[in-house]
Design a protein around this nucleic acid. Structure first.
Length: 595
RNA sequence: GCGCCCGUAGCUCAGCUGGAUAGAGCGCGAGACUUCUAAUCUUGAGGCCGCAGGUUCGAAUCCUGCCGGGCGCGCCA
C-alpha cells in the first residue's frame, strides 16, 4: 500500500577512504606491545584483550593517552599490574612520537606524545573534512531502525518529536560508523483506531457534500485536518456513498484516510529533516500471510498453545473474563507471562502482528533497534521474547525508550489534552523555533531521562541555550577565518604548524581529536546525546581559548604581525570548526556561518 | 501487588560500558568590554554519588535487599 521511498544504494566508489586516527594508531601500538609480551611468554596468548582501553586521561597532567592494559592483563598473566606495566613500558616507549611512558596509580600506563603526533591528527581532520569521525566498525552490519511509527490518525504532535529525532540521529550515527542502515516506519493501519479515522473521514465527506454535521461526536477525531480528506472524497465519489451502509465505504475510506494522514506525517517529518527509507503497513503484513507464517513457525518450535491467562494484577478491567486464547510462551523467554497472539474472535492481536513484523525485519538485518515512547515499556519484554524465539537469538533487538518532553512557555507548563484535540503539533513548534533548535534540544539529554523544552530558552541567544552556544562557536570561527583572509592570512598547512601551539591550543586540538572516539562510543551505546555533550564541551574550550585574546592581544588568533603563528592557529581553529560541523551534521543540525 | 526506568552540588543534568583527586551549566560571591562577534570568558564557595551489604587490585558504574519518584499492567494500540 505504501511505496517505500527510493533508497540510495551506497556506491562503494564514493565511500571515502577511512583514516586511522591517533587513537587507532596507538591502540595498535598497545596491541603490538602486548603481542611482544605474548611472544616472550609473559602474557598467555588467549588472554582476553577486550577490556583493554586506550583513552585520554581525565586529568591532562597524566599525559596524552592512557591504557589500563597492565591492570587488565595482570590476572591472566599471573603477575602484578606494576610488573606487567614495566614490561609494557619498554615496548611502548619504542612507538613513534612517544616522549615518555609513565606508570601511575594502580598500574596505568600514561603516554606523552610529541607534538608531531597531534599535528598529524590536525592534518587528518583537514584531509578527511566532512568525513572526519567516520569509522568502519559497523562494516557489514545491516541495522534496521524503526522510529516514529505514530498511528496514522492525524498530524504529528510533540509527543512524537523526541523519538523521531533520536531515531534519526542514531540512524545517521550508525551510517557514519559503517553500518548499512534502514530507516523504517511501521504504519499501524490495521487496528480499530483506523476504523475510527475512516468514520471521522466519512463525516467530513458528508460535510463536504453540504450536510450539517454539527458537533463531532465523542469518540471520533474532531481535528480540522480531516476536512480536506472529506473534500477529496466528495470530489471522488460525489453522492455515491452518502447513504451507503458502512461496509460499502469503510475499507476504501480507511485506505484513503490513512494515505492522507501519512502524507501529513511525511510533511511534518520533512520539516524536521527526517525521511524514512521504508513505510511498512501492518494491514499489508496481515493480508500477506506473514503473521500466519510467524505463528506457524513459533508453533512448530512448540512455543504456542491454547490456554487461559490469569487475570491481570492490579486494577481488574470491568469486562475481564477467562477465555481460551492462542498464546505465545513469552515466559520461557524472559517475559512475566505468556502473551496472546490472537484475540478470541480469531483476529491477530497487535502483539501477534508485531512479532511477525519483527521477524520480517530480522530477515533482512543483523541488528534491530526500536524507538518507543516510555509508556510502552511494559511491552518490551514480550517483543524481545518473540524476536529471540523467532530468530533463535541470532538477531539482537534493542528497544530504546524515550521519555516525555514537558513543554514550557517562559517557565509555565503548556497544557495538552489529547481528548480535546488540543495538542501542540510538531509543525507549530518547528515553525516557531526552527528545525535545528528542536533537533539539538531533543538530543541534549539521555533518551531515558525526561526533558524540559522551554520555548523561550530554546530561542534565547545566550550560552544558557546549548544550541546557540555551539552554533555561535562555529559562526565565530567562520567569522575569524573571513577576517583573517581580509588581513592576508590563511590557515597554515600542518607541516608549518609545529611549535606554534601553546598548552591551551594543544588541549583544544586534543579535545577536537576525540570526535571519532565519541562517535564510536555513541554509536555502540545507541546514545546520540553524547555527540551533543561533546559539542558543548568543545565549544566551551574554543570560546575559552578565543577569549584569551581579549585579555592579551598577543593571544589573538588573527594577528598579521605574527603571520606564522597566526596561520598555524587558524589551521587549528578551522579544524575545530570542522569537528563542530561534523558533530552537528550527525545530529541533523546545520552549522551557522554567521549570527 | 508485579514489571521497567530513574535517584550524582540548592536547581537541571554529564560521567567515556569497572579506573586515578566525581564534572558542567544555571543560581550565589568576586572579576574582565577603545572585542579577532563580551551573544563571551576568568575565579570562589557548594558532594556520606538515596541507604545497607556483596563481587575485586579498584564501584557513581556490576549483583542483592531496602527507601523514594516516574511510567506501565488489557484479547487496547
Amino acid at each position: 500500500m505504501y511505496r517505500p521511498a527510493v533508497r540510495a544504494v551506497p556506491d562503494p566508489e564514493l565511500k571515502p577512504p577511512l583514516l586511522q586516527t591517533i587513537f587507532d594508531i596507538y591502540a595498535a601500538e598497545v596491541n603490538r606491545a602486548i603481542d611482544a609480551l605474548v611472544a616472550a611468554g609473559t602474557v598467555p596468548a588467549d588472554a582476553n584483550r577486550k577490556p583493554v582501553t586506550l583513552e585520554p586521561p581525565r586529568d591532562p597532567t597524566h599525559g596524552d593517552l592512557s591504557t589500563n592494559a597492565a591492570m587488565v592483563l595482570a590476572k591472566p598473566a599471573k603477575t602484578n599490574p606494576r610488573a606487567l606495566a614495566e614490561a609494557l613500558k619498554q615496548e611502548l616507549a619504542a612507538a613513534p612520537h612517544v616522549e615518555a611512558v609513565e606508570i601511575a596509580g594502580p598500574g596505568f600506563l600514561n603516554l606523552r606524545l610529541a607534538e608531531p603526533a597531534w599535528i598529524a591528527e590536525l592534518a587528518r581532520i583537514g584531509e578527511a573534512g566532512a568525513h572526519y569521525g567516520r569509522s568502519s566498525f559497523g562494516e557489514g552490519v545491516r541495522a534496521n531502525i524503526e522510529y516514529v511509527s505514530a498511528n496514522p490518525t492525524g498530524p504529528m504532535h510533540m509527543g512524537h518529536c523526541r523519538g523521531a529525532v533520536v531515531g534519526d540521529a542514531l540512524a545517521t550515527l550508525l551510517e557514519f560508523t559503517g553500518h548499512d542502515v534502514i530507516r523504517e516506519y511501521y504504519v499501524n493501519d490495521a487496528g480499530g483506531q483506523v476504523d475510527v479515522l475512516a468514520r471521522s473521514a466519512h463525516l467530513r465527506y458528508l460535510e463536504a457534500l453540504g450536510e450539517d454535521i454539527g458537533e463531532i461526536p465523542e469518540g471520533l477525531y474532531p481535528g480540522d485536518y480531516l476536512k480536506p480528506v472529506g473534500d477529496a472524497l466528495a470530489r471522488e465519489y460525489g453522492d455515491e456513498l452518502r447513504n451507503a451502509p458502512e461496509a460499502d465505504w469503510l475499507p476504501t475510506f480507511r485506505r484513503k484516510a490513512v494515505d492522507a494522514m501519512l502524507e501529513l506525517i511525511r510533511t511534518d517529518l520533512g520539516k524536521l529533516g527526517i525521511h524514512h527509507d521504508l513505510f511498512s503497513s501492518e494491514y499489508d503484513l496481515q493480508r500477506s500471510g506473514a503473521v500466519d507464517r510467524a505463528e506457524a513457525r513459533l508453533r512448530e518450535m512448540g512455543h504456542v498453545y491454547e490456554g487461559v491467562l490469569e487475570p491481570p494484577k492490579g486494577e481488574l478491567p470491568d469486562d475481564w473474563e477467562p477465555v481460551e486464547l492462542t498464546l505465545f510462551r513469552a515466559s520461557e523467554f524472559g517475559d512475566d507471562v505468556d502473551r496472546p497472539l490472537k484475540k478470541s474472535d480469531g483476529s491477530w492481536t497487535y502483539f501477534g502482528a508485531d512479532a511477525a513484523y519483527h521477524l520480517q525485519k530480522a530477515e533482512q538485518a543483523d541488528l534491530l533497534i526500536d524507538i518507543w515512547g516510555a509508556d510502552h515499556a511494559g511491552t518490551v519484554k514480550r517483543i524481545k521474547a518473540a524476536v529471540e524465539a523467532l530468530t533463535g537469538g541470532k538477531v539482537p533487538l534493542d528497544v530504546l525508550l524515550v521519555q516525555m518532553v514537558r513543554l514550557f512557555r517562559a517557565g509555565e507548563p503548556v497544557k495538552m489534552s489529547k481528548r480535546s484535540g488540543n495538542f501542540v503539533t510538531l509543525a507549530e513548534v518547528v515553525d516557531e523555533v526552527g528545525k535545528d533548535a528542536v533537533r539539538f534540544m531533543m538530543l541534549s539529554r539521555r533518551a531515558d531521562a525526561p526533558l524540559d523544552f522551554d520555548f523561550a530558552k530554546v530561542k534565547e541567544q545566550s550560552k544558557d541555550n546549548p544550541v546557540f552556544y555551539v552554533q555561535y562557536a562555529h559562526a565565530r570561527i567562520q567569522s575569524m577565518l573571513r577576517r583573517a583572509e581580509a588581513e592576508g592570512l590563511a590557515p597554515a598547512p600542518p607541516e608549518d604548524c609545529a611549535g606554534h601551539f601553546d598548552e591551551t591550543d594543544q588541549a583544544l586540538l586534543q579535545l577536537a581529536a576525540q570526535l571519532p572516539r565519541i562517535v564510536r562510543l555513541a554509536a555502540e551505546a545507541h546514545e546520540p546525546h553524547r555527540v551533543a555533550f561533546f559539542l558543548e564541551s568543545l565549544a566551551a574550550a574554543f570560546h575559552a581559548n578565543y577569549n584569551r585574546g581579549n585579555d592579551d592581544p598577543a593571544l589573538r588568533v588573527v594577528r598579521p604581525e605574527d603571520a606564522a603563528r597566526s596561520n598555524a592557529r587558524l589551521a587549528l581553529n578551522r579544524a575545530v570548526g570542522q569537528v563542530i560541523a561534523n558533530g552537528l551534521g550527525l545530529m541533523g543540525v546545520e552549522p551557522a556561518h554567521e549570527m
